[in-house]
């Protein structure tokens, strides 16, 4: 019962998202009203690591924790792209991950959204020009929102997803 008493002593630790730097989140194209209404409150997110250093992954995993709590917005992380509505892509797309990324995008049922997280996903970051990199994410699959940062804070990533949904 020590666990339960500790839970009650700790209380709810979820924080409200602070307003952030508007430069970090880039909306590439406006999401149509139908998708916005559809995903506005229930969104399945599939995270795709297209060759990242895992820095962004660590920040994304913070989203599921009690402090940032993405679930309160109706987001839940899913195991299969077939269950997903939004792909959260990280990393410069390495040559080995190019085809898997395309296949993941293809496996996701439409309507679907893509949010590219991190500098690598936007501009290939420090790996730009490397022989192992095929290109940034928008050169492989269509992207709706970029979230800059190396790595971006979890609050920025949340803001990026909310921007994709038209809920800023």
């Amino acid at each position: 019962m020590g666990l339960l008493s500790k839970i009650f002593r700790t209380g709810i630790v979820t924080e409200a998202i602070p307003p952030g730097d508007p430069q970090i989140v880039h909306l590439v194209r406006e999401v149509d009203r139908r998708s916005r209404r559809l995903f506005g409150r229930a969104l399945g997110i599939r995270e795709v690591d297209a060759g990242s250093c895992n820095g962004c992954e660590i920040e994304i995993s913070g989203l599921m924790g009690p402090v940032y709590d993405s679930e309160r917005f109706g987001f839940h992380f899913v195991a299969s792209p077939r269950h997903a509505d939004l792909l959260l892509v990280t990393g410069p797309v390495t040559r080995n991950m190019e085809v898997p990324l395309r296949k993941t995008y293809e496996a996701t049922p439409s309507p679907k959204l893509v949010v590219a997280v991190g500098d690598c996903a936007h501009t290939c970051g420090v790996f730009k020009g490397s022989y192992a990199v095929a290109g940034s994410v928008d050169q492989i699959i269509p992207v709706d929102v970029f979230v800059d940062g190396c790595p971006p804070e979890p609050a920025d990533i949340l803001r990026g997803i909310l921007t994709a949904l038209g809920r800023s």
């Binding site: 792209p81 077939r82 991950m97 085809v99 898997p100 296949k103 293809e106 496996a107 049922p109 439409s110």
Partner: peptide, 10 residues
């Protein structure tokens, strides 16, 4: 829509 079986992008 018909597509490939999902196999983690293999």
């Amino acid at each position: 829509r018909v597509s490939d079986t999902w196999g983690c992008g293999r």
